[in-house]
Design a protein around this nucleic acid. Sequence first.
DNA 1: AAGTTGACTATTT
DNA 2: AAAATAGCCAACT
Length: 131
Amino acid sequence: MTPRDKKITYEAIYAMVRLIPPGKIATYGQVAALAGLAGHARQVGYALHRCGKIEDVPWQRVVNSRGEISRRSAKQGSEALQRVMLEAEGVAFTAGGKIDLARYRWDGEDARLSENSADLLADLPIDLDRI
DNA sequence: AAGTTGACTATTT
DNA sequence: AAAATAGCCAACT
């Protein structure tokens, strides 16, 4: 894999995350598979870990396979932020801080249809300044 | 250049 | 149901 492809791989991950509809969530493994990187769930986590400078990636819609917000090694602040942002989108959490995957999990149906139409996320339902 | 690390997951206690 | 185990693989030291 050339260094150039490496960048493309990351872009593929970000592109897939961008396709997750508001109010839905996806798991790391699911994003990896849809991006053509089956078995690279950890790489998705790593990609999101360093997505701080990228503004238009709705990273809060990616959770682990248990439907929970994954723990970070440092800076726990973003964990709380993630939950707030998801709740602002209408995603409900159980008392244990988990999400009902059966209900909110994204099926990925829009992924293949609109791979080239970024207009899907034109209107984010959340106003970040209000959080 | 080899060893460590981690925003993962499936399996087993 | 929750915690430990064992695979996993690219990025980072």
